[in-house]
Computed example of a mutant assay.
Amino acid sequence: MKNYKKGHRKRLREKIILDNGQSLLDYEVLEHILYSAYSRIDVKPIAKSLIENFGSLNKVFNADLEALQNVDGVSNTAISAIFCVKQAFVRSAREEIKDLPIIDNWEKLLDYLRISIGSLNKENFRVIYMNKKYRLIAEDLQNIGTVDQTPLYVREIIKRALLIGSTSIVISHNHPSGDTQPSNSDISLTRQLAEACQSIGIELIDHIIITFSSYFSFKENRLL
């Protein structure tokens, strides 16, 4: 009987070279990433198991450490490879807004937020600090919260903005539920931050609730 596993990695590499990997199936993308973690074993079952467990390639890349460790056969070395790929996506998207006026490149900012926090399974707050020309000068992960609550520390944001000389900020957080409608807590906290910013001459440009497929803008919906 012919051994179809023999030469499989070579065939997969040739497939990638042929069309820049565009014809790869999702599990084949994971296979190639996992080669760096497993030099000798067949990683196809592990790649397929990851897709099956999380439902999509995107959700694999956005899974947290504990969730990945619960998948049979997935080692910490494999997890580190997955995390590095996710960071490559995030940093590439961040480069797109790094040296541009963010206020004039809104779609690129939304793309960055989708990639960095849009699919995470816990609420995360990003605070984007800008200068007078609306260029990025700093970014903070303000808080990693539970699924249903993310404290927003107004005082810490204001303190940080003053420390680095930021004159405008955008805040964003994800809703793991996929529903981008703001909660009463979201609205209340945004108003508190807007009032604090206004009192010291800092512009709160927007609060964006983001998921991988949609977003809610407080400014566009006249809540800011």
Rank of each mutant, 00 (worst) to 15 (best):
K132M: 09
R126D: 12
S217V: 05
S92I: 00
I202L: 03
I158N: 02
K59A: 12
I157N: 00
S166M: 00
D140Q: 03
L113P: 03
Q181G: 09
N58F: 04
D140R: 05
S75D: 12
Q198D: 09
L152C: 14
I82S: 01
D72A: 12
Y35D: 14
V170I: 15
D19V: 11
A78S: 09
R9C: 05
S188R: 13
G178F: 06
K133P: 05
L109R: 03
E195V: 02
S56Y: 05
S214R: 13
S188D: 12
Y112W: 08
A63G: 06
K122M: 05
I208C: 04
S168D: 07
L163D: 14
K59G: 02
T77V: 11
K219Q: 12
C197I: 01
I137C: 04
Y134D: 15
F216L: 10
H173L: 07
L65E: 14
I200S: 00
G73C: 06
I117E: 08
L30E: 10
S119C: 03
V29N: 11
D99N: 15
L193A: 01
R126S: 09
K159R: 10
P45F: 06
K122G: 02
K5E: 12
P182Q: 11
V60H: 08
Y215R: 10
S168H: 06
Y153V: 13
I171H: 05
P45K: 07
S116P: 02
E195R: 02
D72S: 13
R13E: 14
D111A: 07
R94A: 10
K59F: 05
S56I: 09
K15R: 10
I209H: 02
N143L: 11
P151V: 05
E156D: 15
K98P: 00
L30W: 05
K44M: 13
E139V: 06
E66M: 08
K59C: 04
I209E: 03
N174Q: 12
Q149P: 00
L189A: 13
S80M: 08
E107W: 01
Q69F: 01
S172I: 01
H175T: 12
V29I: 15
K48E: 15
L136A: 04
Y27E: 15
I46M: 02
L100E: 15
K159V: 01
G73F: 04
P45T: 08
E139Q: 13
D99C: 04
Y112C: 07
Y38M: 07
A67N: 13
E28I: 13
N121R: 10
E52L: 07
L189H: 14
E31D: 14
D148M: 09
Y112E: 11
K108I: 00
N3H: 06
I202F: 00
R135G: 11
